[in-house]
Nucleic acid binder design. Structure first.
Lengths: 246, 246
DNA sequence: AGACCAAAGTGGTCTGACCGATTTGGTCTG
DNA sequence: CAGACCAAATCGGTCAGACCACTTTGGTCT
């Protein structure tokens, strides 16, 4: 991706945000190509390129007669990242839903990897998990996330499930970008996480895919419970902001 | 979607198939916009619209200097359906991978639904599962699939997990189209399927989400084992075709 | 209220132009 | 013969304008 977004990309971003934030109702027509060209001081050809990208995302439907907005539930997985980026106006509980799905995905991933792993693979995976445990001790969030990415890539290299990879493309990168933001600090019981990771490591070394899968689920459940606490905190903070208190 | 595909859509389909079937190597440049316009007897503006759609799919990267092919592993989930449609040239074991992921998704879906369902929801879900069991007795594949769609929609209506919905958009519709094709006849132990569905129904009625989740996994494992048998059969058939035998 | 119809407006497709960035191929040098 | 250099060719990005078939809109009539 080029460093400087093209004019078409900038317009894509603006319209996508407008659509996903609900500025247009489902079924409503977007302004015409000529109107959009005028608004963005662009040309009809460029606007048509923009519309093709939004159509491919699944959030609009193009027909002679006009371009209409489709329900976000019928879009592609790619819109998820953009929804998450909308921050405060995101759908209720979207993060929790992402965590549920991530947990199921990782659980399947670790089970598939263990079922196909060589002893060398097992050793490598266990080493990465040890690093995760250490990063809790070192209180290094950045390293923790880095190692989750490494673990993800290692497991995919072992089981080579393309479907998991493709779902991960639309899920993990945007989501990890979200949880890496400085505003996101869920309250998580670090000791419980350490215990779960230890259980995961043991299950991996014993080549027990069922136990490993369960440990992953427990891990994501912990993140979810921390998210609930975090949402309540941020809801409080938001309420304070509205009443003008620090 | 209009009944008659536009010229742009036809070109999108042709180039997407060429790219996904490996006609271009990763990193290789596509023919230029002007060359493609000439090949398809079209115009550069239309070709640029085509390229924007392929870019949004994640299978090409557009920069000044040329359009290059990206690895399919880095694409969006949407390409999965097109890969499945490629039939014989599909990636080895792709169907099995889809089934693994579908199983995990459905398992999470049924667990999430049970955890949030009212008694009325539970009753409706159980009724749908009873219909699934009956469709095995009636040997009605079409009704069976129809009811799976109904069950899917009902569970989504209950748990309202947007992420599952979006993944399902890119996974289920194309996949179901695939398994509805007359060429696809996996050998499945119908009695075992009936038993699993019965267990699922009981788990639903008892509001036991763990058991229900396991029943779903067992169901998809059965489909997977049937797929393996089917792949071996179709591999044999393919071998016979190549040697010129009926 | 419903039918009808002309006008206006929509997207689909096309031609041609210009510009900045990248690639290509030839030439020269060590 | 490899590497550097550079001009030409080619690439994608953006633009203006035209024409056509289809859809929407608004006025008129019954």
């Amino acid at each position: 991706m080029s460093a400087v977004p093209s004019k078409v990309e900038e317009i894509v971003c603006t319209l996508r945000t407008e659509i996903l934030s609900g500025q247009y109702r489902v079924g409503e027509r977007l302004p015409s190509e000529r109107d959009l060209a005028s608004r963005f001081e662009s040309n009809r050809g460029g606007i048509r390129e923009v519309i093709k990208k939004l159509e491919q995302l699944g959030i609009i439907e193009v027909t002679p007669g006009g371009v209409r907005v489709r329900p976000v539930e019928e879009a592609t997985l790619e819109v998820l990242g953009y929804l998450l980026e909308l921050g405060e106006i995101q759908k209720p509980d979207l993060f929790a839903q992402v965590l549920d799905v991530l947990g199921a995905m990782f659980s399947l991933s670790v089970r598939s990897a263990i079922d196909r792993a060589t002893d060398e693979d097992i050793s490598e995976i266990a080493t990465i998990i040890e690093g995760l445990i250490e990063s809790i001790t070192d209180d290094s969030v950045e390293k923790h996330h880095e190692l989750w990415m490494t673990l993800t890539e290692k497991m995919i290299a072992v089981h080579q499930n393309l479907v998991l990879k493709l779902i991960g493309n639309g899920l993990r990168t945007r989501f990890m970008a979200g949880i890496n933001s400085p505003d996101f600090e869920p309250v998580i019981d670090q000791e419980a996480v350490r215990q779960v990771l230890n259980d995961l490591k043991n299950a991996v070394e014993e080549k027990n895919s069922e136990l490993a899968g369960r440990a992953i689920i427990r891990h994501f459940d912990l993140m979810k419970s921390g998210l609930v606490d975090f949402s309540e905190q941020s809801a409080d903070t938001e309420s304070q902001r509205r009443t003008g208190h620090a």
